[in-house]
Simulated assay, not measured.
Amino acid sequence: MTPATSRSMFAVAVVLAGAALAGCSATPPVDATSAPVEASASASPEPAAEPAPATSDPTCDTVLTEEAIARLEADGLEQIDVGASTFYPIADDLIEAGGLACKWGRPSSDATLTVVQLSGIDVASSEWPAALAAAGYAETGDPVPGAHSGPTDPGTGVPSVVVVETDRLTFVSTPLHAIDVAVD
Score class of each variant (00 low, 15 high):
residue 53 P to D: 04
residue 158 V to A: 00
residue 143 P to D: 03
residue 150 G to D: 06
residue 147 A to S: 15
residue 182 A to Q: 07
residue 19 A to D: 00
residue 161 V to M: 07
residue 49 A to G: 01
residue 168 R to D: 15
residue 183 V to P: 04
residue 135 A to K: 09
residue 163 V to H: 05
residue 58 P to M: 04
residue 22 A to D: 02
residue 153 D to H: 00
residue 113 L to Y: 01
residue 12 V to L: 14
residue 5 T to R: 14
residue 55 T to S: 12
residue 181 V to M: 06
residue 146 G to H: 09
residue 93 D to K: 14
residue 107 P to K: 06
residue 177 H to D: 11
residue 117 Q to I: 01
residue 11 A to P: 11
residue 90 I to S: 04
residue 11 A to N: 05
residue 164 V to R: 13
residue 82 V to F: 09
residue 20 A to F: 14
residue 34 S to A: 14
residue 104 W to N: 02
residue 146 G to E: 11
residue 30 V to K: 08
residue 18 G to M: 13
residue 107 P to R: 05
residue 111 A to K: 01
residue 38 E to W: 09
residue 108 S to P: 00
residue 88 Y to A: 05
residue 32 A to M: 12
residue 127 E to P: 11
residue 61 D to K: 15
residue 90 I to H: 08
residue 80 I to L: 02
residue 164 V to Y: 10
residue 166 T to P: 05
residue 143 P to G: 06
residue 157 G to L: 00
residue 32 A to V: 15
residue 136 G to K: 04
residue 38 E to V: 06
residue 138 A to R: 08
residue 162 V to R: 07
residue 154 P to L: 05
residue 134 A to Q: 13
residue 26 A to R: 14
residue 72 L to I: 10
residue 33 T to G: 02
residue 79 Q to K: 03
residue 153 D to W: 01
residue 180 D to Y: 01
residue 110 D to F: 01
residue 118 L to R: 05
residue 47 P to N: 05
residue 179 I to L: 06
residue 152 T to P: 00
residue 167 D to S: 08
residue 45 P to K: 13
residue 178 A to D: 02
residue 107 P to D: 14
residue 39 A to I: 03
residue 30 V to T: 15
residue 2 T to Y: 08
residue 141 G to C: 02
residue 114 T to C: 01
residue 145 P to Y: 11
residue 96 E to D: 15
residue 103 K to N: 04
residue 10 F to K: 13
residue 57 D to L: 09
residue 70 A to Q: 13
residue 109 S to Q: 02
residue 105 G to V: 11
residue 174 T to K: 04
residue 94 L to Q: 06
residue 49 A to V: 07
residue 124 A to Y: 03
residue 4 A to H: 10
residue 183 V to R: 05
residue 58 P to D: 11
residue 80 I to P: 00
residue 55 T to F: 08
residue 114 T to F: 05
residue 58 P to R: 06
residue 74 A to K: 04
residue 130 A to Q: 13
residue 167 D to M: 04
residue 91 A to K: 07
residue 162 V to K: 12
residue 167 D to K: 00
residue 6 S to I: 11
residue 126 S to M: 09
residue 26 A to T: 10
residue 6 S to C: 08
residue 22 A to P: 03
residue 15 V to C: 15
residue 52 A to R: 06
